[in-house]
Write a protein that binds this DNA or RNA. Sequence first.
DNA 1: TAATAAATGTCGTTT
DNA 2: AAACGACGTTTATTA
Lengths: 260, 260
Amino acid sequence: MEHPQRQTILQTPSLKEAVEVIKQGISRHRTVIIAGKCTVDYDGRASSKLESGERLVIFKPDGSALVHRPKDYSPVNWQPSGSIFHTKLVQDGLVIRVFRRKEKESMVIAFTELQMVSVMDLKDNVEFTLYASEKEMQEAILYKPDLLESGFRPMTKEMAVDPGFIDIIGYDATGTLTVVEIKRVKANKKAVEQLKKYMDVIDLDENRPVRAILVAPDITGDALELLLELGYEFKALTPQNCSEVLKQKKGKPLTAFFNP
Amino acid sequence: MEHPQRQTILQTPSLKEAVEVIKQGISRHRTVIIAGKCTVDYDGRASSKLESGERLVIFKPDGSALVHRPKDYSPVNWQPSGSIFHTKLVQDGLVIRVFRRKEKESMVIAFTELQMVSVMDLKDNVEFTLYASEKEMQEAILYKPDLLESGFRPMTKEMAVDPGFIDIIGYDATGTLTVVEIKRVKANKKAVEQLKKYMDVIDLDENRPVRAILVAPDITGDALELLLELGYEFKALTPQNCSEVLKQKKGKPLTAFFNP
DNA sequence: TAATAAATGTCGTTT
DNA sequence: AAACGACGTTTATTA
């Protein structure tokens, strides 16, 4: 055989057939996929009960476990990585207990019928890259401040103030101190309130005019109302806009943008 | 055959063998599970790129799709239910496009090698019940107000005020108006700020003393500091406590608690 | 549809 | 370990 067998697949196995395959798969740090009729009980931060039905259950080598029903994006039950699995064949069925000692959480899956048991050795070590995050919008404005407005000069990024971090502080074309808050999705009232919290601190520290600009692809009606009431400003900018700008950048470090 | 074949499992199939099975599985509203080497590109609210590696990919009958790496609880890429799947065999491999027209989102999965293709008809219609939610904590306090403090009399639940909904409003033993905010996990500063927003409205509307009580299993140091600064109070109460109380309730409607 | 808050949120980062 | 904020948050609820 050219390719050594890197997966074991059992179709409608008996519980007895399955138990050793599952145990070995878990102990050898494989990804174990089980489809079958089961109940699931969870107890920890909350507690839950799921009566018998057919589900897809996944145990990963890092100790994460997922129970998926045939609908919905999110698992009905789960435990995050770092959990410990115990597999046992009992009178009633094949029981897999998932523990997290630290969090005092447990999830118990009891199978009565199996449609499939699959054990695989998935090799996957490449990087995952997410583009057009809020950080990237920030980078884009620092790289090309005209994106915000003509003549804007960034001074600091992520300045620490009491309530948190101000995304960008700089001076506008007339030399007025300007606080910039960036959101990558439509801005709501919460975003304006966050900006206000920063402004409260800035206004307290300095005794001179300060502008506040909220940058986002869009803004809700309520948020715009509050924004204008507070005398702040809105600048429409999408992650895609920023992504385009960053394509020109290519590897210049962020520190390069803070030269005189 | 006693049990009609309710699943199709292909082990290390060729892309050509797999494509028809996948297409049929999707069109017949089955759960389709694919393990294999693939790349994943996402474009929508953000965009992402995942280079070639071995992953577990799930397509559900409701139009949700998940891409799982061999680590982590959360999928590396996904689309929620209501998405549309397009499967196509091209020169480079087996490509499955997942669309959400409304959200202008797409995820493209391109397989070059397959370890497994499994198509199942999972029957799962029972209810899932989760205990010890915030709503249950609220119900417990309404059922047995002494849980909050002796002599407390609830007046309304979920009173609508401008910022949102106040969990419980009532009168304490001395007849002072009392606002109750409930959190099912350790309360942080954000919870106190939320309570403050409610109090700002209440204090504005009424010109008399008002108490504010934050109910949670625990509270962070910063949050407690802010809470006391504002003159509010903290009452420790766990979801488990409340769950115990509710076991005595057994089906009495909530409205039954608002009698003179 | 928009806004608002809960979630077994999870995840990363900083203190 | 604790606290805090971001997330392609998702999900439910309500105006």
